[in-house]
């Protein structure tokens, strides 16, 4: 059953939609990375480099 599902080829329209969905997901992940970095710097401020040795 699984083989039959995967053997169905996508139409050009479906391929295009899948591509835009993948790009949107990649963009979201990229934004999250930037967001976490910026928030870390904003919350820690100058103390970002001060770590207990």
């Amino acid at each position: 059953m699984a083989d039959q599902k995967s053997s169905r080829s996508l139409t050009p329209e479906e391929q295009k939609r899948r591509r835009t969905r993948s790009l949107a997901l990649a963009l979201t992940l990229g934004v999250l990375v930037v967001l976490f970095y910026v928030v870390t710097i904003a919350k820690l401020g100058p103390g970002v480099l001060q770590r207990p040795m």
Binding site: M1, Q4, K5, L10, R18, T20, R21
Partner: peptide, 18 residues
């Protein structure tokens, strides 16, 4: 049945739909 399962497994949504 197989066709409907195959279709059900495929997302038809665009980014704007989400």
């Amino acid at each position: 049945h197989v066709e409907s399962l195959a279709t059900a497994g495929l997302s038809q949504g665009d980014v704007s739909d989400f």
